[in-house]
């Protein structure tokens, strides 16, 4: 029904323009007319009102004209929406995972990054999923928005036109750091993009096939970094055997992060809170003993 080459962004901007102009015209018309009436029929100028009760023809006219106008707006708006829902064949798929309060982008070759790199001029399909609450993938530069839901896949697409840097926001309120849940979008030339996507050592990148994949899959890396930087939770860098201060039952305690501690803090994260961090971590919904062992071994092996 809709030609696939239609760029949703252009169509949506077109609808904006149509609705804004018609609205401005109607608002100015009504306001102008009212002000004129207030002046012209002020009781000092028009002491005897004319008791008109109505006019059927007028009622008919000002019902029909808006019907026609809004029908046009509906069609125009729907066309833009449909375009944003109709992914061109051969679009480049990027699996996008939302969690409190970070985005991760997984490329077809297995690279995972916290920055969304895309090649210029190639349609990009964003396949969305959330690991916890509802988030929303919002890229104002391309007028697209789609909610990321737990337990259900959604999608959207866009056509990166100019190279440059843009932002993805989270548009669905998701708790404490909702406002910080943004990611950088880099539109690069195809060559630059190819170089980046095949380089697994870029900052923020995670090798999805490596032993650390479990940390990504379970959502740990949303709040715990691998490179020593402080996110919502303490970093994983050098975590095994680290001397740690925790708050336990309101009391401060010091301990060395051994295997037993790591296990406890995954299964019952509220019992001991690392000093200086908020009590945010949700207990795991369901975790198999094998997965738990894999995580612990992975943490032990980290530098």
């Amino acid at each position: 029904m809709i030609p696939q080459i239609l760029n949703p962004m252009e169509q949506i901007d077109h609808t904006f323009l149509i609705i804004f102009s018609i609205s401005a015209f109607i608002l100015l018309g009504i306001s102008g007319l009212s002000i004129y009436f207030l002046f012209r029929y002020h009781h000092t100028r028009n002491p005897d009102p004319d008791p008109i009760e109505g006019n059927l023809l007028l009622e008919f006219v000002w019902t029909i004209i808006p019907v026609i106008l809004v029908s046009g707006m509906f069609v125009s708006g729907w066309t833009g929406f449909k375009a944003a829902r109709t992914v061109p064949v051969g679009a480049y798929p990027i699996k996008t995972t939302a969690r409190m309060w970070a985005w991760n982008f997984e490329y077809p070759n297995g690279k995972i990054a916290d920055t969304l790199w895309v090649p210029q001029g190639k349609p990009i399909k964003i396949i969305l999923q959330s690991l916890d609450v509802i988030h929303s993938f919002y890229m104002p530069a391309y007028r697209i928005k789609m909610d990321a839901l737990p337990g259900r896949e959604t999608y959207t697409w866009f056509l990166p036109m100019k190279t440059g840097e843009f932002t993805v926001f989270c548009a669905e309120y998701c708790g404490l750091k909702h406002a910080d849940m943004s990611a950088k979008v880099v539109v690069a030339t195809q060559t630059e993009f190819d170089e980046w996507v095949n380089d697994f050592t870029t900052p923020g990148a995670v090798v999805a096939t490596g032993p650390q994949k479990i940390l990504f899959d379970k959502g740990c890396l949303g709040c715990h970094s691998l490179d020593g930087s402080v996110k919502a939770g303490p970093t994983f860098k050098g975590i095994f055997g680290r001397k740690t201060f925790v708050i336990k039952g309101g009391q401060e305690e010091s301990l060395t992060a051994d295997e037993a501690y790591l296990r406890r803090s995954i299964l019952d994260p509220k019992a001991e809170i690392v000093k200086g961090f908020p009590d945010l971590m949700p207990p795991p919904m369901d975790i198999s003993p094998e997965d738990l062992n894999t995580i612990i071994n992975c943490l032990k092996s980290l530098p």
Partner: peptide
């Protein structure tokens, strides 16, 4: 907001 395309933005 009623128009689906502009609402998306």
């Amino acid at each position: 907001l009623g128009s689906a395309g502009t609402d998306m933005h």
